[in-house]
Design a protein around this nucleic acid. Structure first.
Length: 216
DNA sequence: CTAGTGATTCCCT
DNA sequence: GGGAATCACTAGC
């Protein structure tokens, strides 16, 4: 039998821990997005950790800028960035405050509000693709930079919230190199900080960082 | 399923 | 100016 997911909000203390603890613990948790159009709930199946100024793959690696400012703030807040000229991706800031660590939400299973998600993701060929990839997840949920800095742990009605859901037991958690992140000068990521649920069909395919074509 | 490529805008150097 | 924490589309196996 399947236990019904816990609908209790995740408290700020959940996020105020080292990012390598929080990231795998976020798998199986439920992200709830509320807009005037309706509500969508996503069960997280894939995430990546970014550990602030000590991590060459992190947006915060070279210090504080206008874009990454939220990462240096309080845990439990949402960092949204715009990339490749078209897409948004969302992160949850982790602890301790000032370390600028965060978890990128890479994929999930839409468990509520699939009708609305399909309207926002017209190119999805099936429901497993609705939030299969970080920009797809953000698109399905209607997330853009207007939500940058939002507190996901605020009381009352909020546009974005994390619920306890059902944590994934350690033996079903996999980890490996992060997608689209290359190491310092070598190929391959420095850190195996991508976490996903074993054998879950909503996990995005791994793609190595696109190699740059050189002139001959 | 995998591999290759163009799209399109912002940010930082 | 260079590259980006990506996606959609196409071709081919």
């Amino acid at each position: 039998m399947i236990a019904s997911p816990d609908r209790t909000p995740l408290p700020r203390e959940f996020f105020d821990r080292p990012v390598l603890e929080v990231a795998p613990d976020l798998l199986g948790r439920i992200l709830v997005r509320t807009t005037p159009e309706g509500l969508i709930a996503v069960r997280l199946t894939e995430v990546e950790a970014y550990d602030g100024p000590n991590d060459p793959g992190s947006h915060a690696y070279r210090g504080r800028t206008a874009r990454n400012e939220v990462m240096f703030g309080r845990p439990g807040h949402v960092y949204v960035y715009f990339t490749y000229g078209m897409w948004h991706c969302m992160n949850l800031v982790c602890g301790p405050e000032g370390r600028a660590s965060a978890v990128l939400l890479r994929a999930g299973e839409v468990i509520e509000g699939a009708d609305l998600a399909r309207k926002r993701r017209l190119s999805a060929r099936n429901d497993k693709e609705l939030a299969k990839g970080p920009a797809r997840l953000a698109t399905a949920l209607g997330i853009d930079r207007a939500l940058n800095g939002t507190d996901a742990c605020a009381p009352g009605e909020t546009p974005l919230r994390m619920l306890t859901g059902t944590a994934i037991p350690a033996h079903q958690v996999r980890n490996g190199p992060r997608t689209g992140v290359s190491g310092e000068g070598g190929d391959g990521d420095v850190h195996p900080w991508r976490y996903w649920v074993a054998d879950d069909p909503t996990v995005s395919p791994y793609r190595a960082h696109a190699p740059k074509r050189r002139p001959s």
